[in-house]
Structures are given as C-alpha cells and as structure tokens.
Design a binder for these strands. Structure first.
Lengths: 205, 205, 205, 205
DNA sequence: AATGAATGAGTATTCATTCAT
DNA sequence: CATGAATGAATACTCATTCAT
C-alpha cells in the first residue's frame, strides 16, 4: 500500500487545502482514534470535499501518515532544540533538562502526541519514529560527549545515549498515558537518579 | 460498550466451545492483527457458528477482551514465577533473572505477546495491563526487600520496583518489536548495569 | 478477479434468494445494460439486501457471470433440441429448421439474448460462449452427417458445421440488433440459400 | 445525451489539440478498454488539461464517439479503396480481394479495430457503424454488377451485397477476436467458397 | 483559451449483529 | 442451544464535470 502523498500542492489555495486537511485529521485522530477516522469526516472537518482529500492523499493510511510525519517533524525539532539549550551547565543539569523536555515539550499537547505514537504503527511509519529516535539519540550523545570525564570511562557513549533516549521515551509515554505504575509522585526525580547513576557508576556497580 | 462475557459456561461442552473460540481468536489476532479480525472468521476457525460465538460474547470487543484477559493472566503467572525462582542468589543475579524473564518468558511466544499489547489498548483493557504491571511490580518489590542492605537506603522500594518494572517492560517491548534504537548488541548487559547502578548508587549520584 | 459463486445455497430459502437475484439481475441487465448495473439495485429488485447478494456472489462480475451461465445454458439446450427435432426430413428442411431456430428460439426473448452476448465479454465468460458455440456446431455436424450424399464430397463436415454455426449466429445477432444491413425482407430465405449453396456446390464453384 | 463535439476548432493550434486528444483517447481505449477510460487520463495523455478537453467535447461519450467516427471514417475509406482496387479481374478474384481486405485492412491495427466495434455500441454510435456497413455494401454491389452474367440471375444484387458484407464483417470480427469456432485453418478459403457458391448457384440449390 | 483545483454524487464491498428455523 | 441466512449501515474511493483564476 502506497502511503506517499499523491502530489505536492503548488498553488496557494491547494496548500491551504492540504494544511486544513492535515490539521482536521490530527484533531479527529486525537478525539476518536484511527479506527473511527473516516476520510469523509476528515474532509468535512477540514471544510473541503472528499474528492479534494483524495487529490492529495491516495488513501486513508497515507492521510494518517502525513499527519504523523508532519507533527513528528515538529516534535523532533522542538525536542532537540530544548535539550540542546538546556545543556549549557553540569551533567546533572543537562539530564534534568532532558527529562523536563520529555515530560513537557510536546509542541502540540500530549493528547496528540499519544495519538501519533499509536497511529504511526498502524501506518507503516515506524521508520519515521525510528528516525526521530535516532536523531534524538545522536543529540544526546553529543551532549554526553561534553561531559566525558564525569561519565564511567568504559561506557560507550552511543550505547549510553541509546539507553537514555529509550528511558526518556518510556517516561514520556507513561506520563502521557497516565500509566498507573509511574513512579509515584516524583517521576522526574527518580528518572534523573536512574540516568545519572547509570552514567556515573563505575563498571561492576 | 459492554465488554464482559455474556455468561459463564457451566457444562463441559460449552467450556470447550469458549476455549476453542478464544484460542482461534488469538491465532487470528497473531496472524493478521486486530483490524482484520472478524467474528465470522473467529467462529469459523473455532469450528462453531457465528451464532454460537454471540451466545458467549456480546460483541467483537468482548471477544478480544477475553483473549487479552486469558493470555494476560497466563503471562503474569509465568513471569512472576520466573523471577521468583530466579531470585535465590545475589541482587545481581536476581536482576539478571528479571531481565532474562523479560526477554524470553512469554509463555505463548513473542508474536502473540506483541499482539496482546496492541489489542489491549484498542479494547479498553488498559486496566488489565495495568493490573498485571502492578502485580509484577509488587513481586519485584518483595525481591528487592530481600536485598535491602545492598540498596541505597534512601530509595523507596515501591518506587524502585515501579521503575524497574517499567524498564523491564520497555526492554521487552523493544525486543519484541525489533526496535532499531535498542542498546546495540548487549541489551541485557546494559540493562542490568542500568538497574544495578540505580539501585546501589547512593543519593546525589 | 474471481468470478465464481461464493457458495452454493443448501437450504430452500437460500436457493430462492439466489434464484431471485439472478432473475432480477437479468432484468436490470436487459433494461439498462452492464454499465449501469448496480449490486444495490440488483438486490433491491430481488427483494433482498445487498449483504445477501454478496453472500453468494463475491463481486459484480461474478453476479453477471452467473446470469450469463444460467441463461446461456438454457439457451444452448433449447437451441440444440430445436434443431435436432427439426431435422427429420431433407437437408433443405433441416437447414430451414436451423435458421428458424436461430431467429426465434431464444427461450428468454431476444432482448435478454442480446444482453447476454454483450455481457459475456465484459465478464471473462467468452469461454462460456465458445463452449456453447462448440456444442451447437457439433450438433450441426451430426445432422449434416445424416445427409452426407447430398453434400459436396470434398467438404470437411466439421469445417462446414463451424461455418454454418457462424452464419446462424451472425444472422441471429443481426436480427436481434435490428441491424440495418440485414437482408432486406427475406433474411431467412437468403440465408438458407447461402448455406445450401455452400453445402451442395461442388468444389471450384 | 448530446454526443456531438462542442465546437469545431478553427485555429491550427486548436485543431492540433483536438487531434491529440482523439489520438490519446484511441490509445487508452486500445490499451485498457472503455471501462477504464477517464477524461482526466485522456487529457493527460494528450498533454492538455481536463478543462481543455471539455472545451471541445461536452462529455465522455462525445469523446468516445469522436474517436469512433474518426477511425471509422478512415477504416471505411481504406476498405472501400482496397476492394475496388482488387476488383479488376474475375469474380473469383474480386471475392478473394474482399476477403483479404476483411482480414487485413484495418488501417490502425486489429486491436484498435476491435476496440472501436466495442465502443461504438456503448456510445450509441451504432448508426455510424451501420452507415459504414451500407457504404461497403454499396461498393460490393457495384462490383457484383460488373459480373452480372456469372451470378445467378434470380439473385437481387442488393440483397446479395448485403449478405456478402455481413459475412465479411463476421469473418473479420472472428479473426480479430481469435474466436475458437473459426473455420479451422483455411478461413479465407472456406469463406470464398461460401460466397462464390452463394453467388453462382442457381435457385433451388 | 487554458489550467487544474474543487466538487460530491455514486458504487462496490464488508462485517457486526440478529433471528427464524 | 446451535446454525447460518439475512440484514443494512457504514466506508473507502472514483471520476465526470464545473469554475475561479
């Protein structure tokens, strides 16, 4: 199943149409999930006809994929910038900034963020998510490199960055989902402790 | 939407029917996913008529929910027993056993495990998943309590257990999904280091 | 595209349903052609729901194919019997009977006959038509064999039968279509002359 | 439904556009049939916009009709010329020429020829086909008139021409369609025999 | 005249669910 | 209780046609 947009709009009017469709779809996805998303409803919400929708998106999945890509991109950019800017100080501060970013920096609200995660799977956009994970992991690695001397010397920075990214992602998901087994009140604190302990403990623990 | 089974079968034959339906549904779910599951196919695979299926399950979601509950239960039991039995030795060994269990002990194969996770969401069975998480967390807490002296004294064991459970679950998912940002080769090793560092490092890192 | 019926009805009720659907479809096909045939309309006309239609026919073409098969079969039987019964007398009389049959013996009216021809193509049922042609040609060959001595000795009877069948078919079509270049008033007469001349003229003409 | 072209282009550029559209449509018709022909694709293939297409053709049928007319005209001309030129010799030779023409002289290849036959029906252009048949029949009649003395005196030449035209058309169709009940190997030979026998046999067979 | 974006009625097809037998 | 025929609302997607630019 082809999930690529059918054509990129050239005229201004067409651009507006596509934008409206993506926004409308994101709303519906957030409110009702992928199952109940309907091309007709998406078009209606966007204030255009179904025909117009299909002019740009060959099928329902392509539409959802466009939403995932659109907002995923935005999210990655925001997140990367947030942790870069928060990393001027100590390692401890940097890690704190990362956790903070994971918990709050969804440029579009946690609802939509949760939706995107869920939808990405159903739409063969796992690669997109993976790419974003990678981008973030690389950024983290750079930041860690700036604190090399504080980190256990036998730790491979790439591995460590990957693990940290994983933890951040998990924490973000659980926060967003209101998962009951989240670390009681002080999730942020526990999480920082986890990461710092991992980074700074010498081998053999 | 009511997701509860319509009635509990009393006679042996009826029990077998229900069992067959659940097994058949689980198979279809694993092979083709939730989207393509149909009550007709489930009934056919189980060797009964749709009518019979509806005798026991009021609707499609109830059917899926039954599958989730059935196998979720099995999984929790297996997992809890596995980590309990692996916890006779040192803290280090216990943690190793937990990770091992997370990576391998899906009594029904990772395929179905993955499916169940996915389906549970679609069927408002998050509570079921949550309950399982809790059960596992409590078991972990008990195990940690057995090694209190090795663990940083300021760590709240419930919090710690929750965090550990979270990490284990994440690791299990990523393994099952083949997530690309998994910790390079030695996921198990990195993971153990993470957990042990967290548990044993004194406050302040 | 699969054009075979989905299942053969077992219960009486189901049989009636299928019958009704085929009849209704034949009517619509006759009245409006294949293009405008709609599964919904066919079901409605048959007095059943679309769902029921799809229980027996996997798609629109299969439905049309069923009609073609159903009536094609009837037609072939009627036609073959008609020319066999009309062939008790002379060669001249036999040929006359064939032409007569071609012009009148559509058990279901020429309208539907025309429709069937047209539809058969669109539905990959050419083989069906071909098979019917063959059956008729073989019958004609048998009849001709009964008059061997009157027929030019160098004529291959199979070839001759094929040609005669072709002519009959063409004549039938043109009659049914009201083709303007049909042989003025006396199509039947001209046609008999054509065939008899062909059969009885010595080689080299 | 109006099937006439919307306007006749006067300027050279417009003429070229119309020509391009007709050619493109004919290609699509040949490659994919009438069912899948869309105005958008026709326009695209012709290198113009849909809007332009609708400037000249009020609707899809008109477009198809134009194609039928355009190539039908060409075909008739070619065919008539071919049989006229082949009729300088004996009756036998003339008939041979006709058959040859029927089998080969499709100025645009049998594929397109077949398509045109099929499309003509769907587009209420039967008259066009009828007119072509008439034209050809009249030409045949003229040719037959040149051999009056060889032909059975009681045969009406118009009737005979009509019958001959019918046979030629049938043969051409079957050849183009690869009809299985075609006269074994020597279709041309059998056909000539058929026609000559008809023309020259005295009444009463 | 040309363009191509927008329209929306129309169609095939599926599938959860009911109910007569 | 079991069966499976019947239902029909729901949905994705197409395409002839129009019209603002």
């Amino acid at each position: 199943m082809d999930v690529n947009p059918r054509k990129i709009p050239r005229q201004a009017r067409a651009c507006a149409t596509v934008e409206a469709i993506i926004v409308a779809t994101a709303q519906l996805l957030t409110e009702q999930g992928f199952e109940t998303l309907t091309t007709a409803r998406a078009a209606e919400r966007a204030g255009v006809s179904v025909g117009s929708l299909y002019q740009y998106f060959p099928n329902k999945q392509a539409l959802a994929a466009a939403v995932v890509d659109h907002y995923g991109e935005k999210f990655a950019t925001t997140f990367v910038r947030a942790i870069e800017e928060g990393s001027r100080g100590t390692l401890r501060e940097s890690v704190g900034a990362m956790i903070h970013a994971a918990l709050v920096s969804h440029p579009h609200g946690p609802e939509l963020h949760r939706t995107l995660i869920e939808v990405a799977r159903r739409v063969a956009r796992d690669e997109k998510n993976a790419e974003i994970s990678s981008r973030i992991a690389r950024t983290i690695e750079k930041i860690l490199a700036g604190h090399r001397e504080e980190i256990a010397p036998d730790l491979d920075l790439a591995d460590a960055a990957a693990l940290v990214e994983t933890v951040l992602e998990t924490v973000a998901h659980r926060a967003v989902e209101g998962h009951p087994v989240s670390i009681a009140g002080d999730m942020a604190g526990q999480c920082r402790r986890l990461i710092l302990a991992y980074l700074t403990s010498p081998a053999r623990g």
